[in-house]
Design a protein around this nucleic acid. Structure first.
Lengths: 328, 328
DNA sequence: ATGAAAGCGCTAACAC
DNA sequence: GTGTTAGCGCTTTCAT
């Protein structure tokens, strides 16, 4: 910058002014500076600027798995909006181990990001307390624990309830629940919705029909369920990751007659045979509302906004839960 | 930091030393400082540190579409490795318009990132010239244009050739090519491989069988192809995005008898009926080699490493290109 | 309209 | 083993 100033015969401050479109610069001076910038190929050092400002214009994003189509879509939506506001996004995958969450997230926070959007993995975000005073934190997909912050979550309990009831109404009486460990609290809510629905219609809780395990084990889990003395006639797969394993497993076993509902849409769900009934979460919208709230908090940290927002989840009925005859 | 120093009765530099595990500190002093840090809840300002160093320990990643399962997987692989090296990743989506590439990428570069991994969209990266002198830039998925840099690309031409030949050997004589505009150069290479294969076996180039258009239009495109006087008996879909549209389109038309090969694997490809033959690109590996090269360049900018690496693409034959009778 | 000085938080270089 | 000084590139404040 000094070089530019020298070359243009002005002070560093004037160069700075030109860059920031400060109106208090003569057109002529501006021109001289602009030329010098061109000639020297000068590029302002963003790092110095953000350092000075004490905040990087970067939105931090932490999700369990960047590769998950759902989160990938969320990230894309956030990126789009961030770009429009000259902000960058720093993304980090939390991975499977809840104990690593804190370390990974704090590594991000140390970078003085201007805000954080997080889909947490662990069941305690108390560690964020010390950061939230000067940093907007928005929770998505999952409620925060041991801390208050803005959150946008799906109606896990309600949607699971809807799906389970849907299967019951089709005549199913033995409905299995398959979950993984990707996101413990969310899974629990969905399990709760499932249980609640069964209770309401007076179906016994049959714990054998509840199978939790890593999504890679889907095939084994499905096989186990179907080998039960009283096998399920329907499966509620509690997230898209498991569904990606459950469907092929059913297919491999030649048991596509077993009804299936997936919590979370996934690519090709409608093209499979049978097409798969899903609870659609609308990742795009989730990302959008999260970044919008983040920007709103940045503008006015103390604005009184509804803290907890539950986004509706839509049941898209397809062939995998068609009204078919159910063996009793 | 001053506060901590004061409280511990030492100088700022000593605090810095403690943080950086400088061995030249008495155990006792170290303890006092550590205590003070705890008490004051002091968190070192990453921004100041990186500013001082002149480089942010951030890997920039620019891809056409963050939501694309392929790129999402690449990003995940990079993130994993970056985390292990205490680096963050700043991701940005290039979008559909090649003209916006430069602006979006330079916005990233201005942040003094320590390296860039880019899957470019436009056909001219000359604008990167001025940056490459102090910044390692790694191209993935696509060769750079008008600039030399490390690159890791798939064997687009060869794989397209393989797929086309594969279809020919199954007896197909009218093989359509469907492409989109997501990544122009890559598409062209694949088209070239397709044409080359057809030439070699002495098949006329029938331009009617080559359909380019946005992947959202897949249904219309497929319908158009099948409505030709001499419709294709096989389709080569030149990327996963289009395949995601082509398959459902074929299904909707009740024409799953038309053979299909997809350049790029996609979720559920093996569970569809018929399961879809794909050219698998191994996103995971691509991300890994890219970040590894980036780190190598960071360590030694002038190391002599093979600049252009072509990664093999594997043809995974499934039912959609089974040896079936082909109407002539 | 422009400039001079000071400082953001940190650390390398050099004392002591 | 510890402290002092200086400066990274920029912008805010206050002069001029």
């Amino acid at each position: 910058m000094q070089d530019v100033a020298l070359r243009a015969g002005v002070s560093a401050k004037t160069v700075s002014r030109v860059f920031n479109d400060d109106p208090h610069v003569t057109e002529e001076t501006r021109q001289r500076v602009t030329d010098a910038i061109k000639e020297l190929n000068y590029v302002p050092n963003m790092l110095a600027r953000t350092f000075r400002e004490g905040k990087a214009s970067v939105v931090g994003i932490a999700v369990p798995d960047i590769g998950d189509p759902f989160f990938a879509a969320v990230i894309r939506a956030i990126d789009r909006e961030a770009q429009a506001h000259d902000m960058a996004i720093a993304v980090t995958g939390l991975g499977d181990d809840p104990h690593r969450e804190r370390g990974i997230v704090e590594a991000l926070l140390r970078r003085q990001i201007s805000g954080l959007i997080i889909a947490p993995n662990s069941s305690d975000q108390g560690y964020l307390e010390r950061w939230t005073s000067n940093l907007p934190v928005i929770f998505i997909d999952r409620e925060p624990s041991n801390i208050t912050a803005d959150s946008f979550v799906e109606d896990d309990l309600g949607a699971a309830h809807t799906a389970t009831t849907h299967l019951f109404e089709l005549g199913h009486r033995r409905i299995a629940f398959i979950g993984d460990r990707g996101n413990i609290v969310t899974s629990e809510l969905r399990l709760k919705g499932y249980r609640m629905a069964l209770s309401e219609v007076g179906l016994d809780h049959n714990e054998d029909l509840i199978a939790l395990g890593p999504s890679e084990d889907a095939e084994r889990i499905v096989a186990g369920l179907l080998a039960l003395p009283s096998p399920p006639t329907a499966i509620f797969s509690s997230n898209a990751r498991t569904s990606l394993g459950v469907f092929p497993a059913l297919q491999a076993l030649g048991r596509t007659d077993v009804a299936l509902v997936s919590f979370g849409d996934f690519p090709m769900a409608s093209a499979l045979q049978p097409s798969v009934t899903v609870l659609d979460q609308d990742a795009e919208r989730l990302g959008r509302v999260a970044i919008e709230r983040l920007l709103a908090r940045l503008r006015d940290p103390d604005a009184s906004l509804q803290q907890r927002t539950v986004l509706p989840v839509e049941l898209i009925v397809r062939a995998s839960s068609a009204r078919i005859t159910v063996a009793s």
